[in-house]
């Protein structure tokens, strides 16, 4: 099903501007409905590269490789994908390579699909257990500045950081039900 573009504040454009200003020109992803507009902006930008993955952990390796080669990348996914990344997150941590993750949360706020709840609820806990600094955002207006802070901490401070966008911002997927 095609997911609705976010209504209200256009945080996707804010995120695009933040990453463009920081030369983060590679975005690795397994898509999520809430990421659709941002991913389309990246895909349309000649100076940016969108990399579609088979599993999110590949993005962790690609982002480390990009950094080793002098560039910057971000990995964007929904919260279920975080679980796929856990062992891989040890890789940039050990290399002391930056890692910037953008995560749209599921299983968290009015979730319709019970299969999303276990990983959604565990997402910040397992990320923090691995040593990733998490920035949770509840309001669309604050996503851009939060991502900017997380990106600067990742690339300037050689840390692993994740911005978790609340399902309250994205909205629960209704599967055509009321």
């Amino acid at each position: 099903m095609t997911e609705q573009a976010p209504i209200g504040h256009d945080w996707s454009s804010d995120v695009f501007d933040v990453i463009a200003a920081r030369n983060i020109n590679t975005v690795c992803t397994i898509p999520d409905g809430g990421l659709t507009r941002l991913l389309n902006l990246v895909k349309a930008a000649p100076a940016m590269r969108l990399i579609t993955l088979t599993t999110e952990e590949e993005g962790i390796g690609i982002a480390a490789g990009v950094w080793l080669g002098g560039g910057r990348a971000m990995v964007a996914m929904q919260s279920s994908g975080v679980g796929n990344c856990i062992n891989a997150i040890g890789y940039p941590l050990t290399l002391r390579a930056p890692l910037l993750m953008l995560v749209t949360m599921r299983g968290q706020w009015g979730e319709f699909n019970p299969w999303q709840v276990p990983m959604g609820q565990a997402t910040p806990i397992v990320l923090e257990a691995m040593g990733v600094k998490c920035f949770s955002v509840e309001r669309a207006e604050e996503i851009g500045e939060t991502l900017a802070a997380a990106a600067d901490m990742a690339f300037n401070g050689q840390q692993s950081t994740a911005v978790l966008i609340s399902q309250r911002v994205i909205g629960a997927k209704g599967f055509g039900q009321k």
């Binding site: 590679t26 390796g61 690609i62 490789g65 990009v66 050990t94």
Partner: peptide, 20 residues
């Protein structure tokens, strides 16, 4: 460590360093 990440890492590196 990082089993499974050799090819992704090399891919990221190759994209960032197209002349190498």
């Amino acid at each position: 460590g990082g089993m499974g990440l050799a090819v992704p890492t090399a891919l990221g590196l190759a994209l960032a360093q197209p002349s190498r």
